[in-house]
C-alpha cells in the first residue's frame, strides 16, 4: 500500500460524514442524534459532519421501522452514496421491526435484507454515546476497507 492510499485510508476514519435516513422511525433515534452535535458529545471532535445529502456522506445512519413504502427510498438513497460507504442501523426497529413487527404495512425483517448493514446500535432509542461509538466503529471499518460494500466491490473486482 503506497503512501497516498494510506493517507486516504486514515482520512476515511478521521472524517466520517454522516447522512441521516429515517425509514419510518418514531423520531426517537433521530432526536438522539441531535445531542451528538451538542457541546457535551460534540461529534466534530471525531471529524463527524452531518450532511443533508447522501452524495456527501460516507456513513448512512438508518433509523426506524422499515415500511413497505420506505424500502424503495432506502435502496435509492443507498445507491446515491458514493463508494466507499458504510451503513449504521440505529435502534431496535431496523433489526426487527420492534413493536411494529407484524403490521401489514411494515417489512417485518431485518434491514440486512435491504442494504448491507455494517454496525448495529442497539437501544430504543440508543444513547448518544452508543451512536457515537457506532459511527466510530463504522469509520474504523472504512479505514480497514472492511465494510460490507467495500468487501463486495473487492470480491467483484477479483472475480
Amino acid at each position: 500500500m503506497n503512501l497516498i492510499e494510506r493517507v486516504i485510508a486514515i482520512s476515511r476514519r478521521r472524517s466520517p460524514w454522516i447522512c441521516r435516513l429515517n425509514a419510518g422511525s418514531c423520531n426517537g433515534c433521530d432526536i438522539e442524534i441531535t445531542p451528538l452535535l451538542s457541546p457535551r458529545y460534540d461529534a466534530e471532535q471525531l471529524g463527524v459532519e452531518l450532511h443533508g445529502t447522501p452524495k456527501h456522506a460516507d456513513i448512512v445512519l438508518i433509523s426506524g421501522t422499515l415500511t413497505l413504502r420506505s424500502r424503495e427510498a432506502i435502496l435509492d438513497i443507498y445507491a446515491q452514496v458514493p463508494n466507499p460507504k458504510a451503513v449504521v442501523a440505529l435502534g431496535s426497529c431496523p433489526a426487527s421491526g420492534n413493536v411494529f413487527a407484524g403490521s401489514p404495512l411494515v417489512l417485518s425483517e431485518s434491514l440486512d435484507s435491504v442494504v448491507p448493514v455494517d454496525v448495529w446500535v442497539p437501544g430504543c432509542p440508543p444513547r448518544p454515546q452508543a451512536i457515537l461509538d457506532g459511527i466510530a466503529r463504522a469509520a474504523k471499518l472504512l479505514e480497514d476497507g472492511a465494510t460490507k460494500s467495500q468487501l463486495e466491490s473487492r470480491r467483484g473486482r477479483l472475480s
Binding site: 431485518s110 448493514v117 454496525v119 442497539p122 451512536i131 461509538d133 457506532g134 466503529r137
Partner: peptide
C-alpha cells in the same frame, strides 16, 4: 448495550 459489528 454497545454497538456491534455483527449481523442482527
Amino acid at each position: 448495550p454497545g454497538a456491534t459489528n455483527s449481523a442482527a
